[in-house]
Simulated scan of single mutants.
Amino acid sequence: MSVHELAVTESVIAAISMQLPDSQVAVVHLEIGRLSGVMPDAVRFCFELAGEGTCVEGARLDITEPEGTGSCASCGTSFPARDALAVCPCGSADVTISGGAELTIKAVEVTDDV
């Protein structure tokens, strides 16, 4: 288990707990971009452990992993980026990463029984 992913997972759970203190969460939908540096499998592992005794205990964790995207300032092309130090297919390194680095709580589903 990574300490980084544990801290990220604890932050996600804390944010949900602050917003929904009296709810029982059924599903948490996270978006973890492939360029975020966060390992989704490690977050899944940490979620169950870190969620014990909180409103997310027993909740299902649904993670989507958007691909990285870059845009080139030299030629204007948008392209898939496989890492944060991407080079455009035209050869330029004047690239802005425009997707794939996000870590977002997209939605939280709660149950009716509390």
Rank of each mutant, 00 (worst) to 15 (best):
P89K: 01
C88W: 06
T9Y: 04
A50E: 07
G91Y: 09
A42L: 08
E52Q: 14
S92F: 11
P89M: 01
A59R: 00
D41V: 01
D112S: 15
I32T: 02
L61I: 07
T69C: 11
G70P: 11
H4L: 05
S92V: 04
I97M: 03
E52R: 15
S17Q: 10
V114L: 12
V27K: 15
A50C: 09
G33W: 13
I63Q: 07
M1H: 12
H29F: 07
V114Y: 14
R82W: 01
G76T: 05
A50M: 07
F45G: 03
C75I: 03
R34A: 15
A93H: 01
D62C: 05
D22V: 01
V38E: 10
C46P: 06
G100W: 12
E52W: 02
T69A: 15
A59G: 00
V38P: 13
I32M: 00
I97A: 01
C55V: 15
I13D: 07
S98V: 15
A15I: 14
E48C: 02
V43Y: 02
F47M: 03
P89V: 07
D113W: 11
F79S: 02
M1R: 06
A84C: 11
S23A: 15
S17E: 07
S78L: 14
V87Y: 00
E5M: 09
A59Y: 05
P21K: 10
S71I: 13
P40F: 03
L85Q: 06
S78G: 12
V87T: 06
A84M: 12
D113M: 14
C46I: 03
V95D: 10
P21F: 10
G33Y: 14
G100M: 03
M18L: 12
V56P: 00
I16L: 04
I16F: 09
C55L: 08
T104W: 05
P40D: 07
T9W: 08
M39W: 11
D112H: 12
M18Y: 09
P40I: 09
G91K: 07
F45A: 11
T64I: 06
T54F: 02
D62I: 00
T96H: 11
T64P: 03
P80H: 00
V43D: 03
E10G: 05
D22C: 04
A59C: 02
V56Q: 01
L20I: 06
P40N: 02
P80F: 00
L103G: 08
T111Y: 13
L61N: 05
C72Q: 01
G58D: 04
T64E: 10
E10L: 06
E67N: 13
K106S: 13
A50V: 06
E109F: 03
T77Q: 14
A107R: 14
E109L: 15
F47E: 09
G76H: 10
D112E: 15
T69L: 14
T54E: 05
S36K: 09
M39F: 12
C88E: 03
C88M: 03
T104F: 08
A107M: 06
A101Y: 04
Q19E: 14
S71W: 10
G53T: 12
A26C: 12
S23W: 00
A59N: 00
A73N: 13
S2Y: 03
L30S: 02
A81M: 08
L49I: 14
I13V: 10
A101C: 08
I97N: 02
T9K: 15
D113K: 13
A84D: 04
